[in-house]
Amino acid sequence: MDILTIKDLHKTYGKGEGAVKALDGIDLSVEKGKFTVIIGASGSGKTTLLNMMGGLDIPDEGEVIVDGVNLSGLKEKELAVFRRNKVGFVYQSFNLIPTLTVQENILFPLSLAGSAPDSVFFQEITELLQLKDRLTAYPHELSGGGQQRAAIARALIAKPSILLADEPTGNLDSRSGQNVLGLLKMSVETYHQTLVMITHNLEIAQMADRVVRIEDGRILA
């Protein structure tokens, strides 16, 4: 069953001379429960594509259909609810909120939805990501890797249907990276989640159920 369908996506940034066509007619469908990896050179449009999938950006043309709902028909406030319920982000640029503790940061999507956290699950995740003893610290007290791990925990806590990750193991040492990958894979299998990841790491690409190559805004067959 396809959880994510993308039809003829186009997106251009900038105007006039400096215009860049980030996505040039992308068609893609992702099956539910599968691990997909997106590979491409920098500037090929991978991040833009991931943004579209998560409702972080609106395409110029084309449709993004997630779980039967067309994202372009949603208003900003509905997109916000979509983002916190259905999608988990692990991104380089959207970091932790500096004025909240690690625990509050991890539980943030749930607080936004007004839901209570599943404490067992929370314990499991924090243990696996070795954050158990750093729960009351503030983000600036953690190392880069620690912050990344906290961001990953935040992405998983709401058990979203889709996990979108942009180089999630970039800052991490091998031990943590293994744990992260293992956790992601386990999450995917246990909760039947779909994982779409951008990476340069061929090992990880090997692990995937499917590899998608992007170049100049188009998918290579």
């Binding site: 916190r84 319920n85 982000f89 959207f94």
Partner: peptide
């Protein structure tokens, strides 16, 4: 950046 981050995490305009 801060507000963009909040919106990406799912903060509705009402919040």
């Amino acid at each position: 950046l801060f507000y963009a981050g909040l919106k990406s995490l799912g903060m509705t305009p009402r919040q």
